[in-house]
Lab assay of single mutants.
Amino acid sequence: DNLVIALHSYEPSHDGDLGFEKGEQLRILEQSGEWWKAQSLTTGQEGFIPFNFVAKA
């Protein structure tokens, strides 16, 4: 599955970004460039995340 774990917390800075906490698990929905579309397994919310803040779970 496309699961990743957050290496750092991220505060959203643009509409459509997904904020998350360090250690949170996310499911990657789309990989494109440096911003990936993801869904939080904690909150169920979707949005874009910086790819370098996460690692394969």
Rank of each mutant, 00 (worst) to 15 (best):
D1W: 13
D1F: 12
N2T: 11
N2Q: 10
N2C: 13
N2E: 08
N2S: 09
N2H: 11
L3Q: 06
L3W: 08
V4T: 04
V4F: 15
V4W: 15
I5E: 05
I5C: 09
I5N: 03
I5D: 01
I5G: 01
A6V: 07
A6Q: 02
L7H: 06
L7R: 04
L7E: 05
H8W: 14
H8E: 11
S9R: 12
S9L: 05
S9T: 12
S9M: 06
S9N: 09
S9D: 11
S9F: 06
S9A: 11
Y10Q: 03
Y10F: 12
Y10S: 03
E11N: 12
E11R: 14
E11C: 14
P12S: 14
S13M: 15
H14Y: 07
H14V: 10
H14D: 09
H14G: 13
D15F: 12
D15I: 13
G16I: 06
G16N: 10
G16R: 09
D17L: 13
D17H: 15
D17S: 10
D17C: 14
L18V: 04
L18Q: 01
L18M: 07
G19V: 04
G19R: 12
G19C: 08
F20T: 01
F20S: 00
F20Y: 03
F20H: 00
E21M: 12
E21N: 11
K22Q: 10
K22I: 09
K22R: 10
G23L: 03
G23P: 02
G23A: 01
G23N: 04
G23K: 00
E24I: 01
E24R: 00
E24L: 01
E24S: 03
E24A: 05
E24N: 02
E24V: 03
Q25P: 11
Q25I: 15
Q25S: 11
Q25K: 12
Q25G: 07
L26F: 07
L26D: 01
L26C: 08
R27D: 03
R27T: 06
R27Q: 08
R27G: 01
R27W: 11
R27S: 04
I28W: 03
I28T: 02
I28P: 02
I28M: 03
I28H: 00
L29Q: 04
L29A: 02
L29V: 08
E30R: 05
E30F: 10
E30G: 07
Q31G: 08
Q31E: 12
Q31M: 14
Q31T: 10
Q31I: 09
Q31A: 14
S32W: 11
S32A: 11
S32T: 13
S32K: 13
S32H: 13
G33A: 05
G33Q: 03
G33C: 07
G33P: 03
E34T: 13
E34Q: 13
E34N: 13
E34D: 11
E34S: 12
W35F: 11
W35S: 07
W35K: 13
W36L: 10
W36A: 10
W36D: 01
W36E: 00
K37G: 01
K37V: 11
K37D: 00
K37H: 09
K37Q: 06
K37T: 07
K37R: 14
A38C: 07
A38M: 04
A38Y: 03
Q39N: 02
Q39H: 07
Q39M: 11
Q39F: 08
Q39E: 09
Q39I: 13
S40Y: 01
S40L: 05
S40E: 01
S40Q: 04
S40D: 02
S40H: 08
L41A: 05
L41I: 10
T42G: 06
T42D: 08
T43V: 00
T43P: 00
T43I: 01
G44W: 07
G44N: 08
G44C: 10
Q45N: 10
Q45F: 09
Q45Y: 09
Q45S: 08
Q45H: 10
E46R: 08
E46G: 03
E46Y: 12
G47E: 01
G47T: 01
G47R: 01
G47P: 00
G47L: 04
G47S: 01
G47C: 06
G47Y: 05
G47I: 03
F48V: 08
F48G: 01
F48H: 06
F48C: 12
I49K: 00
I49V: 09
I49N: 01
P50D: 05
P50M: 05
P50N: 07
P50S: 04
F51L: 08
F51P: 14
F51G: 12
N52R: 12
N52V: 06
N52M: 09
N52H: 12
N52L: 07
F53T: 06
V54K: 00
V54M: 03
V54T: 03
A55M: 12
A55K: 09
A55N: 07
A55C: 13
K56T: 13
K56Y: 15
K56Q: 13
K56I: 14
K56W: 15
A57L: 15
A57Q: 13
A57V: 15
